[in-house]
Simulated scan of single mutants.
Amino acid sequence: MAYKFVDNYREQGARRKLVAHLETRGITDRRVLRAIGKVPRHFFFDETFWNQAYKDIAFPIGAGQTISQPYTVAYQSQLLHISKGDKVLEIGTGSGYQTCVLMELGANVYTIERQESIYQHTIKVLPGMGYHAHFFYGDGSKGIAAHAPYDKILVTAGAPFVPEILLKQLKVGGILVIPVGDEKTQKMVTVIRASETEFERIELDTFRFVPLVGDQAW
């Protein structure tokens, strides 16, 4: 299947408005805002719904999953403090929108998705857009130990706890960002690996994600 990507002045203008909106919501990292301004979010939508692409809302993508709200993507990305060349593990590829934002920030992204239909779609769409991440199909709650350790780990679904197996895959000095709570609402949690055995945990704002499903989750 061929994918046709068209990005014109209308969509570019809509992205600029979205970036301005995110600034009013407290996103201050200029690099994150520039990344949001570069990624054509409408490419992740059927053309019928392009008018929804630059609204600050989540949107269904099938298999019970959603493309995340732009504010949520920006919020999590800002917490990661990505440096160019960082090796980043993304748990939950989903549409691939967050993946693209991480790559615009200069990350070397390893991303895993458990929904096969979404995985098969994304591994075709993202390369067609010029984004060449390392794609994996499987249970993201267990991470990808074969390619560990990672500078940063991002979980894009709500977990009942922070999986220890993910902490073990994080470099010393690395950052894990994960929403933790019940199946309705979660607190955004940042975990910093201070040493081989010490971790600093910070709880932040409340969000609502789809559940993280797997051996180390729901």
Rank of each mutant, 00 (worst) to 15 (best):
F5Y: 12
E11C: 10
A14H: 05
R16T: 10
K17N: 12
L22G: 01
D29M: 06
V32S: 05
R34E: 14
A35G: 05
V39T: 05
R41S: 07
H42C: 04
E47K: 15
T48Y: 15
T48Q: 15
N51E: 15
Q52V: 11
I57G: 10
G62Y: 10
A63C: 15
Q65P: 01
T66S: 12
Q69Y: 08
A74E: 05
Q76A: 13
L80H: 00
L80K: 03
G85W: 06
I91G: 09
G92Q: 07
Y97G: 05
Q98C: 06
C100V: 10
A107L: 06
V109E: 10
V109S: 10
Y110K: 08
E113H: 07
E113D: 03
Q115L: 15
H121Y: 15
H121T: 14
P127V: 01
P127G: 08
M129D: 04
G138R: 03
K142N: 11
A146I: 09
A146F: 08
A148L: 05
Y150C: 06
K152F: 00
P163I: 00
E164Q: 12
Q169E: 01
K171A: 05
G174Q: 05
L176A: 03
V180H: 02
G181M: 00
D182W: 01
K187F: 11
V191M: 01
R193V: 01
E196T: 01
T197L: 12
E198M: 13
E200D: 11
E200Q: 13
F207C: 08
R208T: 14
V210I: 11
P211L: 08
L212K: 02
W218T: 11
W218R: 14
